[in-house]
Amino acid sequence: MNPISLFCILAGVTLNAGAQLLLKAGVNAVGHFEFTRANIVPIGLKLATQVPIVGGLACYVVSVAVWVVGLSRVDVSVAYPMLSLGYVVNAFAAWYLFGEALSVHRLAGIAIILVGVVVLARS
């Protein structure tokens, strides 16, 4: 994989991970809610006007564009598993930003993901 291809793939993964984090921040700002017929419009409007949610959706749009460029240069059998790096990024970012737990099991899973990505990237 050449440097430009790697950049496109990693940029797509990073933007996708950033989108998830922004969506979580936006939902956290709204708080826990239940979707019912009575509140679907008010909650929907509240969610749609959260800046982090709008930013997260924008990150998704850009990530898709970058991902398509990456896919034009890399086999999907190599590129798609790279998306698992998003889990690694999100796990550490969620721990740092939102205080989510990083248990031994999660850290072991992250290690397995990283080994798999290294093996794929070298093939």
Results as ranks from 00 to 15, higher is better:
9 I>T: 12
41 V>T: 14
40 I>Q: 15
90 N>H: 05
51 V>Q: 02
112 I>G: 09
102 L>M: 00
11 A>M: 10
77 S>W: 12
8 C>L: 01
54 V>C: 11
65 A>C: 08
82 M>Q: 15
51 V>K: 11
50 Q>M: 07
67 W>G: 14
78 V>S: 08
60 Y>H: 10
44 G>R: 02
101 A>S: 08
92 F>M: 09
24 K>P: 05
43 I>V: 10
18 G>P: 08
44 G>C: 02
94 A>L: 04
103 S>R: 11
98 F>C: 08
103 S>F: 05
49 T>R: 13
65 A>N: 06
10 L>F: 03
6 L>P: 00
33 F>L: 01
30 V>I: 12
67 W>K: 05
35 F>V: 15
22 L>E: 06
81 P>E: 05
17 A>R: 06
45 L>R: 03
15 L>S: 07
28 N>S: 14
80 Y>V: 10
75 D>K: 03
23 L>K: 06
40 I>F: 15
18 G>H: 06
115 V>C: 00
93 A>W: 00
60 Y>Q: 09
102 L>W: 05
70 G>I: 00
39 N>A: 09
86 G>V: 02
74 V>M: 15
83 L>Q: 02
109 G>F: 08
25 A>W: 13
14 T>C: 01
7 F>A: 06
74 V>S: 11
49 T>V: 14
71 L>G: 01
19 A>H: 00
98 F>Q: 01
59 C>M: 12
33 F>D: 13
10 L>V: 04
89 V>W: 13
87 Y>N: 02
47 L>C: 07
5 S>R: 07
25 A>N: 03
111 A>H: 03
60 Y>V: 04
96 Y>S: 06
107 L>P: 12
12 G>H: 05
115 V>L: 02
40 I>M: 10
42 P>E: 01
74 V>W: 12
94 A>W: 04
32 H>G: 12
67 W>L: 11
28 N>R: 14
37 R>S: 13
97 L>G: 02
23 L>E: 12
111 A>Y: 02
61 V>I: 13
43 I>E: 15
61 V>M: 14
